[in-house]
Design a binder for these strands. Structure first.
Lengths: 338, 338
DNA sequence: ACTGGCACTCGGACGCACCGAGTGCCAACA
DNA sequence: TGTTGGCACTCGGTGCGTCCGAGTGCCAGT
């Protein structure tokens, strides 16, 4: 039931407010946009928009600012995704291409995203369970000491020390390594538990204990929620927030330091499409005045992890979404190549 | 030459200022410390301390605050290192003991240190070049694709993808792996370059190119300055700084995001003893109103990396130094055990 | 349905006076 | 010589009253 023009007014308010960070009034609006109507008309429209809950007045005699609901409408109906300029695209590619290993890829991605959006960037490492096994290595470091190394197709490498219940011969080790790999290489980590279930039974009783220990360590490593890692960056961009600092950024910094919170935040994003969570849509209360733009990325069609940015609700949604989408694509490519 | 009592006055000023965050006057000083003299006398002493540059007045009619020089004297002569309480010690041990791999150790250490000192914590990963080789693994992922995995005695694991100039047989691979390990295991990474120099010459000409490629990748991984990694945490503690926020923490957050800056900062610390850099003693200009307390840690007697905290010059030096030292010791133990 | 006009609101900026913590100096004292 | 109490002075912070103007809601007119 909002007329076309009213939507136009809302769009104008969002754009102006994002630009100036100040409440926008009817007069300023008509001056800066070609709405074809007078300030009085705009005032009427604003009154309606306010009734509907899309905008609000911080003070009786001030201009309007968008509410979370207003931003939501803006993102859903009024804004596109702004594609990056081609120099930007080239810069991304150059920057990511130099990466030498997965840590490097993730680190560069975080910095890139933070710089591009001028906001806080969050990048999740490719999930183990959603990746496929490239190789499982077992190294003997001491007679009863093994190191387990898992390598995914996305380049992620996890290692665990294992203390064996009994010494484990070099022959048994080679045997276990070979059998393990023949079963799991190329499979998804999520399927590994089933694939190795009866493996211990085929070993001599003296080795069985060690094999079980190895396998249980392997399975522990794959527990979802635990195996997730992430990297954040660009926190200094928080200082651009508002002038009412401390109270604003303290909870955000605190939330960002809790991996659990961040993982949940990213987890809420749908796998495929880009997800935008605005203000109070975020469950965590430290983040009620921030928005999260996140999207999955992967080496193939399936997402192996997510990345995104956290910024004030008053952000440039089209631009941010464009940057996030573009970076996710390039990272996917890089991973596929490695 | 400052008399004993003047030093006592300085100590009192530092302690009070650190506690209250407010300039301290002569009256308040005599009330809160048993100096045995009247405010008037303290005023005279303060005038001298100010002449000597140890304290300063923010405004003509305000109390005094310590200068960097004042803190320096305090740290060098007046303050000890406050040992942790035994519950604290136990908490540290419990917290660190659950770590499952090196990333986990470093991550927990950062959180621990941040929580203990209520400041920003920085922990460097054990340097490759200063560690010894536990194992070098070469995996064949595709006919002309290898993965190189380096494992240190501190638990650090680095991996690199290698595209070979020519296919590399399984036999040659096993050969190279064996020869490589027999030369370098147990040696310091810093010595590896010499130890592998003439290795390619002992291979068939068809494999020589690949071997060289592997070795040069290995050496690249060991380049100092590049191989250093670190983790930071506790940035939300910055919000406790002062009330003149934005201007204060912006440059600090920016500095913290530049690994180079941080590495240089830690690098300036002496290896063995604890180093305290106060305010302008830090070269980086974003950090001129912060202090850095850092110390080396290692699995043996030798430091393999450094850790420390960054906080306002107005910090609790004895407590901070105590926490940093204690954490460094425990981390060293943990690494030695793994 | 839109527009111009008008009275009203209220937050922010400005000016001013006051208060009090803190200082420096000095004369007196041990 | 070092310490002390007394005293005049400084100056940042706070509270208060005023003023200004952007912005609003409403209404009558087109």
């Amino acid at each position: 039931m909002l007329s076309e023009r009213r939507l136009e007014v809302l769009r104008a308010i969002v754009q102006d407010y994002v630009g100036t960070e100040e409440p926008v009034g009817s007069k300023a609006l008509t001056e800066r946009h070609q709405l074809g109507v007078s300030p009085a008309t705009v005032r009427n429209d604003m009154a309606v928009l306010e009734d509907e809950g899309f905008i609000a007045q911080p003070h009786t005699s001030a201009g309007r600012i968008p509410t979370d609901k207003g931003y939501r409408l803006f993102v859903d109906k009024l804004a596109g995704v702004k594609p990056l300029s081609s120099p930007e695209r080239r810069a991304i590619q150059n920057f990511l291409d130099g990466a030498v290993d997965l840590d490097d890829v993730v680190g560069r991605t975080v910095r890139l995203l933070a710089q591009l959006t001028r906001q806080v960037a969050v990048v999740q490492y490719p999930s183990l369970t959603r990746s496929t096994v490239r190789h499982v290595e077992l190294l003997s470091l001491a007679p009863a000491r093994l190191m387990l190394v898992l390598i995914t197709d996305t380049g992620r490498v996890e290692q665990r020390m294992i203390d064996c219940p009994a010494p484990f011969g070099e022959a048994s080790l080679a045997d276990l390594r070979a059998r393990l790999n023949s079963r799991v290489v190329g499979r998804r980590f999520a399927d590994v538990p089933q694939l190795v279930r009866e493996l211990p039974e085929s070993f001599d009783s003296e080795d069985r204990g060690t094999v079980s220990t190895v396998l249980s360590t392997l399975l522990e490593t794959l527990v979802e929620e635990t195996e997730e890692r992430l990297m954040i960056g660009g926190t200094s961009n928080l200082t651009r927030f508002g002038h009412d600092f401390p109270v604003m950024i303290r909870p955000v910094l605190e939330a960002l330091e809790e991996q659990v919170v961040l993982l949940k935040l990213l987890g809420e994003a749908t796998d495929s499409a880009m997800t935008v969570r605005i203000g109070h849509e975020n469950a965590h209360e430290g983040l009620t005045s921030t928005s999260v733009v996140a999207v999955g990325y992967g080496s193939g069609d399936e997402a192996v992890a997510k990345l995104g940015v956290v910024g004030p609700t008053r952000m440039d949604y089209p631009g941010t979404m464009g940057a996030v989408r573009a970076v996710a694509r390039y990272v996917g490519q890089i991973l596929a190549e490695s």
